[in-house]
């Protein structure tokens, strides 16, 4: 859902920017020698643009922070005690402490034995659900609230060497 929303915003924004450049680029003729007048009009637009950009940025910033996947945010959202799965990664495999996981809140404790990996969870339709890094010496605590049963796949989302693209496994949510 986030991907679709942001992807649409990316396309819409690109079209708007292209439209503005097209409009300005095709309005270069005829020359207006009163540059001061042109500049003042441009700077008036700039002031309005500045406040508009500030408003949009503040809204997106707040939405982004609310959607943070970090324990500090997620622990407040998750109701009940989460089921804990320990994830240990190494070139080029995933070790899971459980491959059958109950519906509801789950906490993945993700770490690595060798290099940096990326712990990406994909649903049955191949959509990215969430992710965290998997790093040696550190544990990433990733909370997920599984609402739909089914098979999920883990794919590596940090380049980790020559078999990075086949570093995958799956688990089932029941």
């Amino acid at each position: 859902m986030t991907q679709l929303f942001v992807g649409s915003a990316a396309m819409l924004g690109a079209l708007i920017i292209m439209g503005i450049f097209w409009k300005v680029g095709t309005s270069s003729m005829p020359r207006d020698d009163d540059y001061k007048h042109v500049a003042e009009a441009g700077y008036a637009i700039r002031r309005r643009y500045f406040w508009g950009l500030l408003a949009v940025s503040v809204v997106l910033f707040i939405i982004g922070v609310i959607a943070f996947p970090y324990p500090k945010v997620m622990e407040a959202k998750i109701k009940g005690e989460p089921f804990v799965v320990k994830i240990n990664s190494k070139q080029f495999q995933w070790d899971l402490s459980a491959t059958e996981i109950p519906l509801g809140p789950v906490r993945f404790d993700v770490t690595s034995q060798d290099v940096n990996h990326g712990f990406g969870i994909y649903d049955g339709q191949g959509r990215l659900v969430t992710q965290s890094q998997s790093m040696p010496d550190y544990v990433n605590r990733l909370y997920v609230n599984f609402a739909k049963p089914g098979k999920y796949k883990i794919w590596c989302l940090e380049y980790c060497g020559v078999a990075h693209h086949i570093m995958t496994t799956e688990f089932e949510v029941k």
Binding site: A14, G64, P69, T130, Q131, L157
Partner: peptide, 21 residues
């Protein structure tokens, strides 16, 4: 630059959905 920069900001703002994709 403007379009690519806009996409970069979206990537940072909604990073969990796009990081390393």
């Amino acid at each position: 630059w403007a379009i690519g920069g806009f996409w970069a900001v979206l990537d940072a703002g909604f990073n969990n959905a796009f990081h390393n994709t």
